[in-house]
Design a binder for these strands. Sequence first.
DNA 1: CCTACCGATCGGTAGG
DNA 2: CCTACCGATCGGTAGG
Lengths: 191, 191
Amino acid sequence: MNNEDSTKKQILESAYSLFVEKGYRGSSMRDIAEHAGIKAASIYNHFENKEQIFEVVFIEKHPMFRILEILDSIRGATAEELLTNAVNRLNKELRSEPALLNLFFVELVEMDGKHVPRAIKTNFPTDSNFIKQIYEKKSEIRDIAIPVLIRFLIGTIFAHIMFNWFIGDSSSRRWGTSAELNDVLLRGILR
Amino acid sequence: MNNEDSTKKQILESAYSLFVEKGYRGSSMRDIAEHAGIKAASIYNHFENKEQIFEVVFIEKHPMFRILEILDSIRGATAEELLTNAVNRLNKELRSEPALLNLFFVELVEMDGKHVPRAIKTNFPTDSNFIKQIYEKKSEIRDIAIPVLIRFLIGTIFAHIMFNWFIGDSSSRRWGTSAELNDVLLRGILR
DNA sequence: CCTACCGATCGGTAGG
DNA sequence: CCTACCGATCGGTAGG
């Protein structure tokens, strides 16, 4: 039924935004229901219990897939351009939507990371435009395995943003700008 | 009083380990009390409420300070040695004590990061043995501001470990080893 | 430092 | 899909 589907989707969207904002235990079934326009008891027509909702949300919204999706829209004539664009874009995206990583933190702290393996197995992307582009520009890059490169790239962005959280955004000037970090990154990656 | 002090400390230690393991809302005052060997009501002789406990714990155990503390014990004859040792040591430490970062995730998700600025202001280290050593070896390093370097170093370790969490530890072979990441990092930092 | 207790809220169920 | 309700647990207080 169409109605069933759309209610289920609304529950998932509601749960996602609440989990990300308040954590798992901080988001009650009543909150999730209200935000989806129904009553708490009705949720149980679509899900067995609260944890099942989280499971589905986490698998669908695993930040890794979202990040690979963002990377797929990046273009660049040279490896340097491609990588610089990727860093800038990811940086911007993760800043404007810190929620992206929050879901993962909730999984780590409140769920002990137990859903991670299944999330990876369920929907790891089979082909990535970004990775394809990197392969085409392989000659400009040091002899590093591509997965290691991807890892380093994504990792650097995380690092950048997480460090800002650590020290608070207030004193960020003294700790360097995005461009400086990008420079160090490219030096390590390019020939 | 000595007794007051030690009870307070036990409450803080108990709260720390519980917050890290179960999150803020997942750790009840009764749990915290029991783990400290007292009853829940007695906590209020030492703290005004639950959030005040978290505040004190977070300021005392902010991962950034613990990391700088670990770095202070690192030695190395050359910049390369110093940095490699630092990467390996931090990596080992963060792996054996993932709790270190969990406290910060709890703060970000359940507290909205509101205690971060005060934690930084309250106890930022005035002198660091590690930073001093880096300065002495400045000639071997590219012309990067030292804070940027520290940031990149700590960030790389984070990145390494967080990426493992993201993909789950299962498929880690294909994504590269610690040594490979260290190599990319050093290329970017050393002259 | 404790026992006893408060109102509020939780996840989930019964029954229609 | 709802109303009504369950037992359990929460943070916090009173009073000694």
